[in-house]
Amino acid sequence: MTTQEWKFTAKDMAIKPDLFTSGHRACAGCAPAAVLRLVMKATRGPTIVTQATGCMEIVGSIYPYTSWNLPWLHTAFENAAANAAGIDAAIKIMQKKGKMSKEHIDIIALAGDGGTLDIGLQALSGAVERGHDFLFVLYDNEGYMNTGIQRSSSTPLGASTTTSPAGSVIPGKLETKKPITEIMLAHGMEYVATATPYYWKDLLTKVRKGLEVEGPAFLHVFAPCPRGWRSEPSKSMEYSKLAVESCIFPIWEAVNGIRQLSTPSKILQLAPQKKKPVKAYLEGQGRFRHLFLPKNSHVIDQIQSLTDARWAKLLKQCETATN
């Protein structure tokens, strides 16, 4: 991978035509839709997109309309990564047989947290193990929002969903979030990163770095869902910022397994007093509303201690990387 840094200026990116266009039918305030727009802004040339089933697949391809201005493929829920692997293999053999120009074609696989952490995990793991050249973008809205807000293995501790309803029996989901980036790092991938749409320049740079890698790359993007999180549509981007500021979702990148914090999280490392309590992030989200009842206050403490422990661990991992 080259060490070149790309300058994505707002003016250049604002006039670059969108490849994921208007007229898609996502809810008002949908952050995953903004993520898709931004990911497509960072493409560098001919690109093929393949998508797993999920909100973003549905809203962009309601028959007879399509929001995609580029070749786009969808087959089933579990195989976004398998599709990407197939496209990569097909391009290789067609170029070898001279049926296609030798131009490099980027492949982007997009999936939600259900299509990555639960249903699509084996296809992703297989494709990464085989070393196909593609970028896998996970937009994480922390649940199966498309089918009616069911819990997924990405749903955080304490969140109320229709299959982990908060009430007199349980205070929302009892389990913690699956550490997908650790799983992907354990595959020995060349490029693994996390990003949020609020810090869009950082997101665009990470997408481009992932595309530059010859081999699989993985990008975990945090994408608030106002419908599923029962939050204000206008606050979607604010939550993606608060998640970073409260260290619920620190942003970093790992090149060849060497982790480095990205600027917004780096600032919190250098100035820990700027770190916000998780309460600031949980407030205003309907899925965490029950946690503010006196009987559930221990769950907030639990989330805070878990977040602190995870942050401390990440800082250590970044430290050992630089030494």
């Binding site: 707002a10 003016k11 990116m13 604002a14 006039i15 969108d18 994921f20 266009t21 208007s22 898609h24 996502a26 305030g29 949908c30 952050a31 839709a33 903004a34 727009r37 931004l38 749409p197 609020y198 869009w200 979607s236 981007m237």
Partner: peptide, 18 residues
């Protein structure tokens, strides 16, 4: 014209006219 709104709009409904 910091263009934050253009970049964060999920709909591409804010256009910048250079």
């Amino acid at each position: 014209t910091c263009l934050t709104c253009v970049m964060l709009c999920p709909e591409d409904a804010i256009r910048f006219r250079p």
